[in-house]
Every structure is written in structure tokens, then in C-alpha cells.
């Protein structure tokens, strides 16, 4: 039986689809029975969704001007 702590260790591999099939099956079985680990996984997925939506940080205007000047001169 997979333990909750194992689920947290293997969460990234599970989400990446890189667990071997038997570990994947044990992982899924654990999730079926353990709502805490389902919550953990949901939070991990939510973290990834948010990361994907992080807006690019603004570029300092002087840097941008310099780069655009270079681009025009090339």
C-alpha cells in the first residue's frame, strides 16, 4: 500500500506521466481512497495552472529602447 508521504514524493512524476505503470496504478488506488492526497494533488495542479498564467515582468524602458535601437541598426 502506497503511503501519503510517497504520494507527495511522486506527485511530479505522476503529473508528468513518468511513473512506471505499477506505481501509477498504486498511486491512483491511493488517490481513490484518500481525500487528503486528492486535495494535495488538486493544489499541485492549481499551482501549475497559476504558474502558467504568471504575466511576464515588465522590461525596464531604457533596456527596451536600447534593444529596439540595436534591432533597427542591424
Amino acid at each position: 500500500m502506497m503511503r501519503c508521504q510517497d504520494v507527495t514524493h511522486l506527485a511530479t512524476d505522476f503529473l508528468d506521466g513518468s511513473l512506471p505503470w505499477h506505481r501509477r496504478a498504486a498511486f491512483r488506488m491511493h488517490l481513490l481512497m484518500c481525500r487528503y492526497c486528492r486535495t494535495y494533488l488538486d493544489q499541485m495542479r492549481e499551482t501549475l495552472r497559476r504558474l502558467r498564467r504568471l504575466p511576464p515582468e515588465p522590461v525596464p524602458p531604457s533596456t527596451k529602447e536600447d534593444l529596439l535601437r540595436q534591432f533597427e541598426q542591424q
Binding site: C4, Y36, C37, Y40
Partner: peptide, 28 residues
Amino acid sequence: GMWSAPPAAWTADDPEKRLLRAEAMEVL
């Protein structure tokens, strides 16, 4: 190896709103 202090669902009380706020993105 089982949870003794399990994670609390983020959507439990103030459904999603709080974590959707820009503040949470800044934290991240």
C-alpha cells in the same frame, strides 16, 4: 507515513475567489 496534518482544501470557505486574487499571484 499517512497525513497527520493534511492539507486543507483551498476552495473550502471562500470558493476560489481569494486565491484567484492578484495577491496570490504575487505570492507565487
